[in-house]
Design a protein around this nucleic acid. Sequence first.
DNA 1: CCACCATGTCTACGAGTGTAGACTCATGTC
DNA 2: GACATGAGTCTACACTCGTAGACATGGTGG
Lengths: 202, 202
Amino acid sequence: MVEDTRGPADGSRRRDAGATREAILISAVEAFTRAGYDGAGVREVAGNAGVTAMLVNRYFGSKEQLFAEAVDRSFAPRTVVGDDPDALSEQTAKAVARRTAPYADDLDPFLLMLRSAANPRAAEIIRAGIERHVGGHLTGLLSGTDAEARAELLLSLIAGVWLMRKVVATPALAGMDEESLAVRLRELMRMLVDPPPDGAGP
Amino acid sequence: MVEDTRGPADGSRRRDAGATREAILISAVEAFTRAGYDGAGVREVAGNAGVTAMLVNRYFGSKEQLFAEAVDRSFAPRTVVGDDPDALSEQTAKAVARRTAPYADDLDPFLLMLRSAANPRAAEIIRAGIERHVGGHLTGLLSGTDAEARAELLLSLIAGVWLMRKVVATPALAGMDEESLAVRLRELMRMLVDPPPDGAGP
DNA sequence: CCACCATGTCTACGAGTGTAGACTCATGTC
DNA sequence: GACATGAGTCTACACTCGTAGACATGGTGG
């Protein structure tokens, strides 16, 4: 009886709206992270959740709204940037180096962003998600002038490394060991975090 | 007589294989830069070149091969990173700040990359294109240890800023004035270009 | 015990995709 | 002036996409 390919073993979860909705959302995060907004289909998301495509639209309204909730779910936990302002450079650099290592393929919000930003609708949703979850939080951790811009530059650096190391897979960066990368990144991040260079007064 | 929408006014270029091929390639660079590999269709590329979709495949074999040639064409001219090793940080920082300004919407290879990297086939083609055109050139400009990795980190920084400022359009970075951004970027790039920190001898 | 409503599925549509084969027509040479 | 060759087009196929409406079904309150 191999009738059902994936999902909850065809008998565990039946007629449980909350659990089904959750399963769809989790499947959506996984699919959007792996293939991006345009590359992931509603049928694929539904299939990996053990339901039909129509149920996705019944619960989430449309693919776009499903993506919006998936972005929220993916960006909500702070897995990359920590909470301690003093150790921000150190911890973030280590986290980026570790989570972009070749063996690690977690479900990172950065991967979801990089693979979905090509679509303008998706890009707008991502922008809103960043502003709501990470942008404000990160800006609050920084002190000095241009905190918001420096926070977004920090995100730019992280996203760029993620892109080149994991998505495009440029050889030297993809093969770089975690320690060396963490050292380089920490120095770069220190420049954005610690000393606000500021314009010298006249 | 508004029978033909775009292209060479329906009478200028007729039965000129070379010119037609060139027109298709230019149209492809524009379309792939604006919408990415998945977002741009062969019919759209053909239409903007004033021909039919089939001619594209007749000249380029397939959409994938067309994309490969478009990547080559887009990455060949060195418009962002200069040729002078001494002024590399200064010139590159200024170029990035200027070409990611809100008013500027040129046909940048970085935009093409960012909007196409979601597709794995396209990502592989882009990786090859970077290695062939910019990677080696940039590595040659750097001296010291880990030149290749530092070159790719430089590209990561550029790509990240391009992504956040132009594609995702994060507010603070999108609205940042060119001068301030150039200053920040120059300092960050100096750290990757000028002094190879190197491991201190034991 | 039965009816009801939420939960989930089936069929289908219209549009769009990349691409293959057959076709038309202009152009240059004998 | 007829004809071969190459430039370009037309029609069509097999497929996927997101989504709408009608239908089936299971758990639960009366």
